[in-house]
Write a protein that binds this DNA or RNA. Structure first.
Lengths: 198, 198
DNA sequence: GTCTATAGTCCGATAGAC
DNA sequence: GTCTATCGGACTATAGAC
């Protein structure tokens, strides 16, 4: 019911097409390497046509980042965090499982988060805040873990490992991210100690 | 003795200046976002002047990557690998210690390795081969480790973690990479088990 | 070894017709 | 909502003077 109103014939959703093309281009060429012309060509418009939807190149970037954050990141992980007995391993496994189904999105985030290390990058603040939010949520969760485990160290180490393993996954198209992460779990949660906690 | 021959007065080494400027620009803007014009301005030349040294933009990229690989990566790690009783933790600690002194280089490698996920990127093959070489060398080393440890899993997981921790280090200028890695070591080599092996 | 000049292409963005 | 046309500028690279 939220499709085009009135009696207009079914046609592609331009806005969604533009966002998809932008995700692709930001991932493969980065923000600076992306041109509105290429995106326009990809969706069958002219530059002016694209600018009608996104106002500017920075506007396109913000649109992509905000849309993604709102629709994807939150609700899957939140459901894990609110369990009676939240497990770090389950939390990460769920995150990885979601990412395994969205390689293009992971690709874009990997490329942009490296490019945005520079403080002048238009997405620099976004990635800084995102990292901070992710860590503070994880640190304030009452994890169920074996006695003596330093959860903060483990969380920071594990998030780092996830970034690296996703890069390797994207570099070798054939591999299964979930399987790669399963191997990582054996390192992060060694089994005599973590028996019953994963 | 390998400075400028003859009686020419001491002056800046143009080639080295160009490489330094290129490392900076490839790191902050990526390959596609880098222009020869900016590099030329940074070193006090014109575009044509820079092209005299590097032939082309791709030539500049190859120059930077090859120079780095030859001069930095090899000899520090090799000395560790050839010890009587090679320890994974010592190998990684040495690598991290070198990187901690070269943030701009780490920055460039982080940015380019994400950008080069795309098979069409001019550095794609370089990073693929580099990864393969690093892993195969590590896997063929007779590591000294506690019984029952799966070294291959540990190595792949640890290399991934190093990538991620270096990204976080670059994002927060104040932090000490060696200290951050020390925390990671506690996760990778948990202490009852790895006592005497790190 | 470094310059000027220029070719040829592409960029982001705007104005305005339909 | 999408177009054409256009602006001002940046880009890589080459040719040739000095």
């Amino acid at each position: 019911m939220q499709r085009t109103t009135g009696n207009r014939p079914a046609r592609s959703d331009r806005r969604a097409d533009i966002l998809d093309a932008a995700i692709d281009s930001f991932g493969t060429r980065g923000y600076y390497g992306t041109s509105l012309q290429k995106i326009a060509t990809a969706v069958g418009l002219t530059k002016a046509g694209v600018l009608h939807y996104v106002a500017s190149k920075e506007g396109l970037l913000e649109l992509v980042l905000n849309d993604i954050y709102d629709s994807q990141t939150s609700h899957v992980t939140q459901s894990i965090l609110q369990l009676d007995r939240p497990l770090i391993s389950r939390y990460w496994r769920a995150t990885v499982a979601v990412n395994a189904e969205r390689p293009q999105l992971v690709h874009m985030f990997s490329t942009l988060s490296a490019e945005a290390l520079d403080p002048h990058h238009p997405a620099h603040d976004y990635f800084e805040q995102r990292e901070q939010a992710t860590v503070s949520i994880a640190l304030s969760t009452p994890w169920s873990a074996p006695a003596g485990v330093d959860c903060e160290r483990l969380l920071r180490a594990g998030f780092s490992m996830m970034d690296g393993i996703q890069l390797r996954w994207l570099r070798t198209p054939g591999k299964d991210l979930n399987a790669m992460w399963a191997d990582c779990e054996d390192v992060l949660f060694p089994l005599p100690l973590w028996d019953g906690y994963r």
